[in-house]
Design a binder for these strands. Structure first.
Length: 209
DNA sequence: TCTATGATCCCCT
DNA sequence: GGGGATCATAGAT
C-alpha cells in the first residue's frame, strides 16, 4: 500500500500507555485510515472521548464487565473496538493500555482528507459537507468500519492511525463532559471529551457562518 | 434554532 | 424483554 509521504503509522508504544485521557487528547490531529477492498479513505481526528476502564460508569467495561462484546477491550492496546448501537450505528474505538486494563478512546469526528468520493458512496450523501464525518456513527460509516472489524490490530495495513506531523495547538483544544452518557451519574461530568476548537466537523454544536 | 421523534437490532439481563 | 457512547428529519418557535 502506498501512503502519502511523511505519514507515519503510530507505534504500539503510543497505545500501550496507561493514561487514556492523555491519549484521547493526543489523538487530536492524527489521521484515521481505512484501506478496505483497495479503497483508501482517511480523515484527521478532530473529536475524541476517553473511556477509563472498570472505574468509569460510562464505559462498557465498568465493574470489569467482561463479555463477548467487550472482550477486546481487555486485550492489548492498539486494537479496534467496534460495537453496534441504537440499532443502526457502528462506533469505532481505539483500545489502549495493556491486557486486563480495558481503556478505550471513541473517535467522534474526523475531517475528511482522502477518498471523499468513496465516503459519499458509503454514506449515500450527495455532497461532501460538514455532516459527512461529523459524529461517531458517521465516522464509521464514511470509513467503512463495521463490527466485523472489531479486534483488528492497528499495526496492520487495513485500519490504523498515522501521524503526518500536524501540530495541534494547545490553546485550540477544548475539554468538555462526554456526550450521551447521562446514565453514568457523576462520571458523566468528567472532562473526558476533547475536540479542536472551531472545527466544523465537531459534533454536538451548531456551526455558524 | 430548538425539540421531539422514528428508524432498527445487537447484546446483556 | 429492554435499552443504548446516534442521526436525520419534521414541525414548532
Amino acid at each position: 500500500m502506498h501512503l502519502p509521504e511523511g505519514w507515519q503509522q503510530l507505534p504500539d508504544s503510543f497505545y500501550l500507555r496507561n493514561d487514556v485521557v492523555l491519549i484521547a487528547r493526543e489523538l487530536l490531529g492524527k489521521i484515521l485510515v481505512s484501506h478496505f477492498d483497495g479503497e483508501l479513505t482517511a480523515g484527521r481526528i478532530v473529536e475524541t472521548e476517553a473511556y477509563n476502564g472498570v472505574a468509569d460508569k460510562a464505559s462498557h467495561a465498568f465493574g470489569s464487565r467482561r463479555t463477548k462484546r467487550t472482550e477486546v477491550m481487555f486485550g492489548n492496546g492498539g486494537t479496534a473496538y467496534v460495537y453496534f448501537c441504537y440499532g443502526m450505528h457502528h462506533l469505532f474505538n481505539v483500545v489502549t493500555n495493556g491486557p486486563d486494563v480495558p481503556h478505550a478512546v471513541l473517535i467522534r469526528a474526523v475531517e475528511p482528507l482522502i477518498g471523499i468520493e468513496e465516503m459519499l458512496l458509503r454514506t449515500g450523501k450527495q455532497k461532501a459537507d460538514y455532516t459527512l464525518t461529523k459524529g461517531p456513527g458517521n465516522v464509521a460509516k464514511a470509513l467503512g468500519i463495521t463490527t466485523k472489524h472489531t479486534a483488528y490490530s492497528l499495526s496492520g495495513d487495513l485500519l490504523f492511525i498515522v501521524d503526518d506531523g500536524f501540530k495541534t495547538e494547545e490553546e485550540s483544544i477544548v475539554a468538555t463532559p462526554r456526550i450521551g452518557v447521562a446514565y453514568a451519574a457523576e462520571d458523566s461530568l468528567l472532562p473526558y471529551r476533547f475536540y479542536i476548537k472551531n472545527n466544523k466537523y465537531v459534533s454536538g454544536k451548531k456551526v455558524k457562518g
